[in-house]
Design a protein around this nucleic acid. Structure first.
Lengths: 292, 292
DNA sequence: AGATATATCTGACTAAAGTCAGGTATATGC
DNA sequence: GCATATACCTGACTTTAGTCAGATATATCT
């Protein structure tokens, strides 16, 4: 009753029945599950018919009919795609939005029901984040984003909070050499966010300088996403970005209070160098020559 | 992107697609999902047709037909129930066992795939245990069991291990007043195990004495099941058992290194009394008068 | 022994999901 | 401009799931 595989399978059984219960509650709105799924996909912002079909794994004939039934019902409207008249674009009508809201309410209610009655909701949420990240690890997307966008700001906030927890003396951004957003945008640099579904779970910045090298800054991986090799993927993405920008030499600074970061750098071709800036926080400095 | 409900829903999406993938892999064996589920239920030891029907939520007509199709296929054999000729009992044939093993292999493979490639498998498993316990909390069954059975021994092992971690001086059962199993069996006492699915997740012992009272011993709740109010339920079950045994006075000892236990006792009608034994580990002693 | 309850089975349906082979309109490559 | 590819639609069909009303055999209660 203890081996890892049976623990995973106990989890599977528990979760299968919970998922089934939600599906069942969806049927209560008088629409078959297939149609409900399409409506919800549209409600969640998927407008392109082919995209929905792909997301839900539907045959094109079936998709077409489901869409038609939703149109006949008056909850969905379709039109030709702006740039390509073969493609169709779907959106919710006014009543469609109302129906979608009702499904959302059902989903939210079951989510709340799950949390209610558990006195350690935060532990439960952390466990769910961990599992969701692990399950979707193949679909974690690394996207170049604006360093001042919502996703980036969220990651940086979490990053600073974590440094505050892990540095004995705490962490105050204003005392650190906070990189200028402009230096982490093309053409000087880059900022990459790892997205799992709709949740940012990691980031890294490539900061251009005028000294013949670029710096890696703000490498962060959400606690729930650790153990998936995401740090390494982010660093590789940053190096790729550097290559496309014609940068051949990278530097970074870090702190010995973050041993997993140091291990990552040492194991991926970085070599330690003397201090190259006067930031008060870092105590370790690395450099890597990258081949194009 | 941070509120609890959307975190739960992200988890739901991740898990729904994983569950769907497993179902899909089951279809690869050329049998509809409904029939595959019945076959697997039988393989997992459910033999009574009514029990399977109840477990899978099937209509009796549908169940009958699925069973028939499995029989025609030669994977399942049925016979009348020994004690009640109306009921049917199903079991796997030789080829049925082979098919079941193939489904098991698929399930195990996906479970292993989930764990593989994650460098912190133990954290992942702990998270899954936590969620599985929370999801199945309505179905946690409290069963009176033999204090020397597998389930009880597993619980006690975990209990001792936890005391070893939490007591500064460690914990050695042989130094403690280890209750005689006989005293925790009817008619002198009782031993109750909380089962979630097939996993023991908590226990409590009621130990009869010759001094006009019984003792509560070995109250344990698995880390993954904390926060669900299981400790309280176990204590209530122990008190109920005491009532059926005609016991009116209960005592217990505990240690201040287990503050959550002390809180539970104080909030449920127990009052502190002076030391009533010479066990070296406890430093707190309680008593409760129970009404029948 | 007779009334009633229970467990399963059968027949007759319906609804939902899924498959497949064309068909139409539009886009793209040369 | 023509061949080819793409995106979606339609018709015809099959399979799976699920429902419901009896029928049959057996058990249980009084």
């Amino acid at each position: 009753m203890l081996d890892p595989v049976s623990r995973v399978r106990r989890f599977n059984r528990a979760v299968t029945s919970a998922v089934g219960a939600l599906d069942h509650s969806f049927l209560g709105r008088g629409r078959p599950l297939g149609a409900a799924r399409v409506l919800n996909a549209i409600g969640h912002g998927r407008s392109d018919v082919a995209e929905i079909r792909d997301y839900l794994g539907l045959d094109s004939g079936l998709m077409s009919r489901l869409l038609r039934s939703l149109e006949d019902e008056g909850v969905v409207e379709t039109s030709a795609h702006e740039d390509d008249a073969r493609r169709r674009v779907a959106r919710l009508s006014r009543t469609g939005r109302r129906e979608f809201a009702a499904y959302e309410a059902l989903s939210n209610k079951q989510a709340e029901g799950f949390l209610a009655g558990h006195s350690q909701a935060e532990a439960l949420l952390a466990a769910m984040d961990l599992i969701a990240s692990a399950l979707t690890r193949e679909r974690i997307a690394l996207d170049e984003m604006d360093p001042q966008g919502d996703e980036a700001r969220y990651c940086l906030g979490e990053y600073y909070a974590e440094l505050g927890r892990r540095f004995k003396q705490g962490f105050d951004v204003s005392l650190s050499r906070d990189p200028d957003a402009k230096d982490m945008r093309r053409p000087r640099g880059s900022f990459i966010v790892a997205m799992s579904d709709t949740l940012p779970i990691g980031c890294v910045g490539l900061k251009g300088t005028d000294h013949g090298y670029a710096e890696i800054k703000r490498l962060w991986v959400a606690p729930s996403a650790r153990g998936l090799g995401l740090g390494k993927r982010l660093m590789e993405a940053a190096e790729d970005a550097a290559r496309t920008l014609g940068i051949a030499l990278l530097r970074l600074d870090t702190n010995s209070a973050l041993p997993e970061a140091g291990r990552l750098y040492r194991s991926t071709g970085w070599r330690e160098i003397p201090r190259f800036n006067d930031d008060p926080y870092p105590d370790l400095f690395f450099e890597k020559q990258i081949r194009s």
